[in-house]
Simulated assay, not measured.
Amino acid sequence: MKNVKGLKKMLALALVVTLSGAYSCKEAKKENKEEMKEEVAEEVQAQPFFELSLAQWSMHRMIRNDGLDPYAFAQKAKEWGFTGLEYVSQLYNPELSDANYSEEAMAAFVAKSNAEAQKHGMKNLLIMVDGQGHLAATDEAERNETVEKHKKWVDAAAAMGCHAIRVNLYGSNDPEVWKKSSVDGLTKLATYAKGKNINILVENHGGLSSNGALHAEVMEMTNMDNVGTLPDFGNFCIERSENGCAEMYDKYKGVEELMPHAKAVSAKSNDFDAQGNDTGIDYVRMLQLVKDAGYTGYIGVEYEGSELGEEAGIKATRDLLLKASKEVK
């Protein structure tokens, strides 16, 4: 009997130890799961609310002065940590302009750009179109001619899988005349682009387009789903002078006014301080405006400074965007 009682005690003790061990394992697994959840949450929080693209204009001196092939754009952007491409039409001149933007020349541009983007796993986003006339010209015949010239770029953007082209609204300095001409030019071009599933985006790029309130008013007057803005953090000079800017619009007010219509965003940069901040633009404040508008798309780096070389300036702007994004609420 004593042996039986002793055996029962030993079995009971073994059961307690086993259950205790199982409980400890469960607790350990639970703690590990909680730790993993926290790590994932921290990693997600560390990711910016936007994706990074590169505006080709950041490389214009490399292309124009140093002889870099503009078709190296995708390769360079990939090397520097970007995933999206924002092309600049004028950087493919004189190749395109000498051919008068012929069908053959445009097809070659599209084919080579697509091949490079695919080769490096990059996404074509938009084409910034310059030098194709004034879309807000006061003369209707001139506006119509400008619309026709831009149609080739709409076709190219569609063939490249882009979502948009960026246009300029240069024209009258009279706000009422400018608004009327802008709406007419945009409506005509966007009507054509709608059939190609392409957006027509207006950047604040000088003249009255850099007046955020007027620019936003043009968007509301045009009232088309495929017409929007491309707010640039720094292009808010309405009128230039020999010494720089004669009339400057408040950049933060302007970005806030343009963001409700934004389908792309451009992070302009120039010079940096010792902490890596842009000396003229508060990036945390700008990104807060962008996030508050509900924007989660691509933000394009557009370095225009002269103190740093273009590659260094591009990387500094990229790093500033990532750093500033962590301080946004």
Rank of each mutant, 00 (worst) to 15 (best):
T146V: 06
M259Y: 04
E242S: 12
M10I: 10
L135N: 12
V255D: 00
S210C: 03
Y87W: 13
E39R: 13
E203G: 08
A108M: 06
A77N: 09
D282L: 03
C237Q: 02
V129F: 11
R166D: 06
K194W: 02
K33W: 02
M160Q: 11
Q118A: 14
P70H: 05
Q275C: 06
V183E: 06
M62G: 11
V4S: 09
Y87I: 10
A159H: 12
K78F: 03
I198Y: 04
L7G: 06
S266A: 09
L68D: 14
K194D: 04
L230S: 04
A157P: 07
E140N: 11
D66E: 15
G294K: 05
G254Y: 00
S20A: 15
V88H: 10
A262S: 10
L68G: 06
N173K: 13
Q47K: 15
L54Q: 02
H261M: 04
V16P: 06
E257K: 15
G309I: 00
T83Y: 06
T296C: 09
A190I: 08
G305Q: 05
H120L: 11
F109P: 01
L91P: 04
S266R: 00
L321N: 00
M221L: 13
S269E: 00
A216Q: 04
Y252P: 02
V88S: 02
E217F: 00
D319E: 14
I127Q: 06
E302S: 01
E304S: 02
W57N: 09
W153Q: 03
E34H: 02
L289K: 06
V177I: 15
I63F: 05
W57H: 04
A105D: 06
S58H: 01
A74Q: 08
E79W: 04
A108K: 11
A107P: 02
A41P: 00
G185F: 05
A190V: 08
G161A: 07
Q275D: 11
V16N: 09
K8T: 10
A274K: 15
L54P: 03
K112C: 05
A274L: 10
K8V: 12
D282V: 01
E311R: 12
M62H: 09
P70V: 02
S241K: 08
A159F: 11
L322F: 05
V167S: 09
D155W: 14
K323E: 13
S89L: 04
G294H: 05
A324H: 08
V255P: 00
A246L: 12
A264E: 01
S53I: 01
K253M: 11
D278E: 09
P48K: 10
V88Y: 04
F82P: 08
M221C: 07
S306M: 06
